[in-house]
Design a protein around this nucleic acid. Structure first.
Lengths: 370, 370
DNA sequence: TTGTACGCGTTATCAG
DNA sequence: CTGATAACGCGTACAA
C-alpha cells in the first residue's frame, strides 16, 4: 500500500529580483581608477616582484575597495591553465551508496584542491554519460585528472592518457605509465595474516577479492607471503575468490567451511560480514571456533558482533595525496610517473580472539576503539 | 595494539612519456584545412542554420577527421557563459558519511548536468575553506549554483545571491528570493501521521527535527494538521524536538515514554532507529506496544527489526530537478523565483502494525519491499 | 550563404 | 620598475 503526494510547481512572490552588486570588474577599470596601466595591475594581482612597494599598496587598496576579482576564464585563455582538476569516479552507483569510501575520498580531494587554489570538477564517467573525461580534457576545461576506478583497466583511462593530460590514479592501475596513490595492500594483508598466525591459528583461509582488481591481487599476495614466512604451505582449498561484496563473502565462507579453517581473512569488511553470517548459520562462533579478520575498517566493522579486526585505510588521505601528487605532476610536465603509498593501521578487535589478552584489549581501547 | 605500515614514495619505470596525440585544435586550423573561414566553422560547430548543407557536411567531415574540440575556455570568454554549474554542499562531513543522501543527490545533479551539456563543480563550502562560493561565482567560473545546505540560513547564501548568480536551493531556504526544489514535507508528514491514526492509535507522539530547519518545521506542521483533522488535540507532552540524529531520537523517546504514547512518528529514520533502541531498552515491543514511523526511507529503514514504515524521498530526483530548474533560470535571467515540489511515497512496513492486515502486506511486498 | 573585423579579460613579451 | 601591444580561441555584428 502506498500513496503518492502530488508534484507541485509554483511561483514565489517577486522580490527585489537579482540586484547585482555594482563592482569594478576588469583589470582595465582598476587600472584607470588607480592611474596605472593594466600590466601593472596584473603584476600586482599576480604578486610579481617587479612592482614598487608604493604602487603595489596603492593598487591593492583600489582592488580591495572595488572588490575586484580577476576573471578566471580570461586568465585561463591567456595562461593556458584553468586551475580546475577533474575527479573521475567511474564506479557503479550502488558502490557509492553502500560505503562512505567515495564521499571520504571526495572530501579529501576537495580539501587539498581548495588549499592549493584549485577547483574540483566532478565527472562520474558512467557508461550512459555524454561527456567522457578525455573529451573534457581535450576541451581544455581541466588541467589534470584524478582517476578513481574500481576496475583499473577502465576503458576511460587510455583515451584520457592519450590527451596528454596529467593523470593520477587512486589505486594501482594496470597501465604502468600512470602515477598513482595507494595504500600498501600487500604489506597490510601480510601484517593482518601474520597477526592471525601469531595467535596460533594454523588453517588460515582467505576470501580474496576479484583477481581483476590490483588491490585484491596485492592483498592475496600479502596473505600468501605471510603464510609462507610462517613456514606453512598455502592450502588452495582454503582460498576463495569473491567480489568484495557481502554476498560473495557469504558464498565463500560456505565453500570454505567444508575444509575446517580455524581463521579467515576476508579481503574486505563487507565480505567479512557475509562470512560472519554464514559462520553463524552453521552454528559456529566467532572467535571461539573461527577467528575472522577483514580489510577497510568501514563503520560496519566496529558495529559487527563481535567487532571486526581489520586494516584501517583512510580514503580522505588518499584523496588529498592524489590531488597533491597531481599538482606536483602538473608543475613539472615531463616528470616520470610516481607512486605514493599511504600507511595503514592494523585495528585489533574481538573477532580474532586476541581480546583474550587483556593487555592488548586495553591498549586497543585507549587508542582506537569507538 | 596496532602497527603502522610505512609510507613509501617511489618512481615508476619511464614509459613513452605522455606522447600527446597530434590533433588540429583550433577553429583556425579547421578553417584552413577545409578551405573556409573561421566564422563558417564556428557556425557549423554551433549548429547555426545559416550554412549551406554542402559546406556543413564538408566541414563536419574535417572536424571529425581531425578530432577537433572547441576550447571551452575561449568559448566562455567570448560568450560569457562557461557551461559550468557549482554544487555547494555546506554540510558537516559527518553527515555526508552517515547517509547516502548526498551521494544520491550528487549523482542526480551530475546526471542532469551531463545530459544538458553542463559541467559540475564541487564546492564543499566548509568553514575552513579558502574559496567561498560567492567568490567562485564572481570570478566567472560558474554560470549558476545549486545550493544544498542543512541549515537553510547558511551564511554562504546571502553573499552568493548578491553576486546575481542564478541559484537553486535544495530544500526550502529562509530567503524567499531563491528558487528551490523540495519534497512535500508537510503533506508527507500529514499522510504518514494519518496512517497511524487510521490504524487506531490515539496517543501519537512526534519526535520532530530541529526547528531551525524548514523541512523539520514542515513535517511538524503536517503532523499537527493530521492530528487536528482527526478531531484530536495535540498533546504537547507528546512532542519532542530532536536534531535528526539517532542519539536525539533515543533521548526523545526516553522523554516521551513517560507519557505513554501508543505510536510515534519520528521526523527522520535515524531518529526512529534511536527511538526503537530506547523502546526496546524499556522492555516494550514494536509494533505491539508502540507503533513507529520514520521519514526518508534510508537503507537502514528496510534493515531495521521490524522494518520501518516511512516516507520515501528520492534524493537523486531532487538533484536532477534542482539542476533542471537552475538551467531554466539561467535561460531566463529575470524570471521570478520558482519552486518545484517532488512527490514522495508512503512506504508501509511492519513497524506500524499494519502488517496485521494481510491484504495490505501483500500489496506492499509486490510493490515496494526489497 | 559566407567572410571580415572586433571584442571578451588576462597574461606575456617587449621596449623604455 | 612601468607601459604598450600582441597573443589566447572563439562568438558575432556587420558587410559583402
Amino acid at each position: 500500500m502506498w500513496e503518492r503526494s502530488q508534484m507541485i510547481v509554483g511561483t514565489l512572490p517577486r522580490w527585489e529580483a537579482g540586484r547585482k552588486a555594482r563592482v569594478a570588474s576588469t583589470l582595465e577599470e582598476i587600472a584607470v581608477l588607480s592611474g596605472v596601466s593594466r600590466s601593472t595591475v596584473s603584476r600586482v594581482i599576480n604578486d610579481d616582484p617587479r612592482v614598487s612597494e608604493a604602487t603595489r599598496e596603492h593598487v591593492l587598496r583600489v582592488v580591495r575597495r572595488e572588490g575586484y576579482r580577476p576573471n578566471l576564464t580570461a586568465r585561463g585563455l591567456a595562461s593556458g591553465r584553468t586551475n580546475v582538476i577533474a575527479a573521475v569516479i567511474p564506479v557503479g552507483f550502488e558502490n557509492v551508496l553502500s560505503d562512505p569510501y567515495f564521499p571520504s575520498l571526495l572530501h579529501g580531494m576537495a580539501t587539498a584542491a581548495d588549499a592549493q587554489d584549485h577547483f574540483l570538477m566532478l565527472s562520474l564517467g558512467e557508461p550512459g554519460f555524454r561527456h567522457t573525461v578525455d573529451e573534457i580534457a581535450r576541451q581544455g576545461v581541466v588541467d589534470g585528472v584524478v582517476f578513481s576506478a574500481s576496475q583499473t583497466d577502465d576503458p576511460l583511462l587510455s583515451p584520457l592518457i592519450a590527451t596528454g593530460t596529467p593523470v593520477v590514479s587512486v589505486g594501482r592501475p594496470d597501465d604502468a605509465r600512470v602515477s598513482f596513490v595507494d595504500v600498501d595492500n600487500e604489506g597490510s594483508a601480510r601484517q593482518i595474516t601474520s597477526h592471525l598466525l601469531r595467535l596460533g591459528h594454523r588453517r588460515v583461509a582467505l576470501i580474496a577479492g576479484p583477481s581483476f582488481a590490483p588491490a585484491a591481487r596485492d592483498r592475496s599476495h600479502g596473505f600468501r607471503s605471510a603464510v609462507a614466512s610462517h613456514g606453512l604451505r598455502v592450502d588452495e582449498n582454503l582460498v576463495y575468490e569473491g567480489l568484495f561484496s557481502e554476498a560473495s563473502g557469504r558464498a565463500g565462507m560456505r565453500a570454505l567451511l567444508e575444509h575446517r579453517p580455524d581463521a579467515v581473512f576476508a579481503a574486505s569488511d563487507r565480505m567479512a560480514a557475509g562470512a560472519l553470517n554464514e559462520i553463524r548459520a552453521a552454528g559456529l562462533r566467532v572467535p571461539e571456533d573461527i577467528a575472522l579478520a577483514g580489510f577497510d575498517d568501514m563503520p560496519l566493522a566496529r558495529e559487527m558482533e563481535p567487532p571486526l579486526t581489520t586494516v584501517r585505510q583512510r580514503p580522505e588521505r588518499l584523496g588529498e595525496a592524489a590531488v597533491n601528487l597531481l599538482l606536483d605532476l602538473m608543475a613539472d610536465p615531463n616528470a616520470t610517473p610516481k607512486r605514493v603509498m599511504l600507511p595503514t593501521e592494523l585495528i585489533v578487535r574481538a573477532s580474532c580472539g586476541s581480546y583474550l589478552n587483556q593487555e592488548t584489549l586495553s591498549r586497543q581501547e585507549r587508542g582506537h576503539l569507538q
